[in-house]
Amino acid sequence: MKIKFEKIMAITSELLSYCHSNGAKEFHLDISESDDAIVLTMRACLEHMPDKEMERLHTALSAPRQREIEQDYWELIGESETHSEMTLVGMLCDETAVQYRDNELSITLKRYA
């Protein structure tokens, strides 16, 4: 069982950066680690989240886990300049869920070892 926490920190930084650049002022982060997986949930208060942006975020995060990409490119995560990093976040995770309700954006990511 080996979950690299440095990658979780990079993902967290990316999510924070993404939410902040979209106007979030308040963040809540939950990280829980079990024997074989880490679940990361970020909730951010956002006054407005355009449908198109929501769709783009969903598409980016639904990228399938790509372990061969992970090794070579994971260090690009954390800069949040374009959507390519959110796609990379998706490629580092096995399960993702995105929801926007009552001015709150919720992103849940699950990453197995």
Binding site: T59, A63, I69, Y73, S84, T87
Partner: peptide
């Protein structure tokens, strides 16, 4: 619509 910066996986998209 993509800049092409790494990672832009056109096959996935």
């Amino acid at each position: 619509s993509h800049s092409g910066r790494l990672i832009t996986d056109f096959y996935f998209l």
